[in-house]
């Protein structure tokens, strides 16, 4: 049995001082880490509880919103400003997990949750390059209905499971982190790194760095946004495909468009080229179909997830049509 100690940090500075190397781990609500420890995937010997920290949601002088890393998913989804100004974020969180888990889970923990690839969790029975670098990937050639089609590699086709992060990607959120060396801010769209041949490295966070908050830029006037999630059952399941979308329409033309995809990639997948193809065009089905094709042009599928390319295109079109319809 591995030794394990638990301590509760009183501040972010205190948490950073307590973090003394690879054997230490910051602990949020544990909704993923407890599972990872039980399965022998995460093997910390020192847990530093940061759930009591960074509990506020504060409007910023620039009109943006700062959400503490320790705020529960429920509190973010229910926040009046989030519901009114960042509805895709509220919807994305409400589409994820269950009320019980959302009550526990923190913003920081949600961002850092690991993939739900079943081969990743099957320590005894499956090869996984993310869990044991260089071992091989049994998802490729295996049961890969849930796996990724964009940004994947020959060594890993796992997806990032978060709904919340897809909406944060749409809103160009910035993740603020602290370490012994000071603070830095990382746009969420740069935060996650693609697997290539090192799928064990998932993001830019260095050992001992702590996420302390997430900043949402000031909301844009007349921007409509929403989140739609498609899954194997109506609720309480991870996404097969999800889309966070936004539009600003002025004088019959789209002046701003946002598309971020979940369930299809190792990170929230911002479809920048597809967005650019919409801007300046009328908000028609044809415009959106063209953009959806651009968004999925580089898809590489497995036999089990080949359906995701067309499904993602259809959900993109449906989301944008809904937003365009609402605007009229």
């Amino acid at each position: 049995m591995n030794p394990l100690t638990y301590e509760k940090a009183t501040s972010s500075t205190d948490a950073l001082e307590r973090h003394d190397g690879d054997a230490a781990k910051f602990l949020g609500a544990g909704t993923n880490l407890v599972d990872l420890m039980r399965e022998g995937i995460a093997t910390p010997t020192r847990l530093i509880d940061v759930t009591g920290l960074a509990q506020s949601i504060e409007e910023q002088s620039d009109g943006g919103l700062r959400i503490g890393a320790g705020v529960s998913n429920t509190a973010v989804a229910e926040d009046a400003t989030v519901r009114a100004q960042y509805p895709a974020l509220s919807r994305a969180i409400l589409a994820g997990a269950s009320a019980q888990i959302r009550n526990m889970a923190t913003v920081g923990g949600n961002i850092l949750q690991r993939t739900r690839c079943s081969y990743f969790y099957d320590v005894a029975g499956s090869r996984c390059n993310k869990r044991s670098p260089g071992e091989g990937c049994d998802a490729i050639g295996g049961f890969n209905r849930a796996h990724g089609i964009l940004g994947v590699s020959d060594s890993c086709i796992a997806t990032h499971p978060s709904d919340m992060a897809v909406a944060l990607s749409l809103y160009d959120a910035v993740i603020n982190v602290e370490s012994d060396e000071g603070t830095r801010s990382i746009p969420i769209n740069d935060f996650y790194v693609l697997p290539e041949d090192t799928p064990d490295i998932e993001n830019q966070l260095n050992p001992g760095e702590l996420i302390v908050s997430v900043d949402l830029p000031a909301p844009s006037a007349n921007r409509r946004a929403t989140y739609r999630k498609v899954r194997d059952r109506a609720s309480y399941a991870f996404a097969l495909v999800s889309v966070a979308g936004s539009l600003i329409i002025k004088d019959g033309l789209v002046v701003d468009a946002g598309i971020s995809l979940g369930g299809v990639a190792p990170k929230p997948w911002r479809a920048i080229e597809a967005e650019a193809a919409i801007v300046g065009s009328p908000p028609t089905e044809e415009t959106f179909r063209n953009a959806a094709q651009i968004a999925l042009a580089d898809a590489t599928t497995q036999p089990g997830n080949v359906f995701k390319t067309e499904l993602a295109q259809r959900v993109i079109v449906a989301v944008l049509q809904d937003l365009a319809g609402d605007a009229q």
Binding site: A29, G30, T31, S98, Q100, I101, N103
Partner: peptide, 22 residues
């Protein structure tokens, strides 16, 4: 599955994923 649901300070959580120490 939700079979372990309890209330903590009135809010529902899953006690199987909660470390008692927290």
């Amino acid at each position: 599955c939700g079979a372990c649901t309890v209330l903590v300070d009135g809010e529902r959580i899953l006690s199987c994923l909660a470390l008692a120490a927290q």
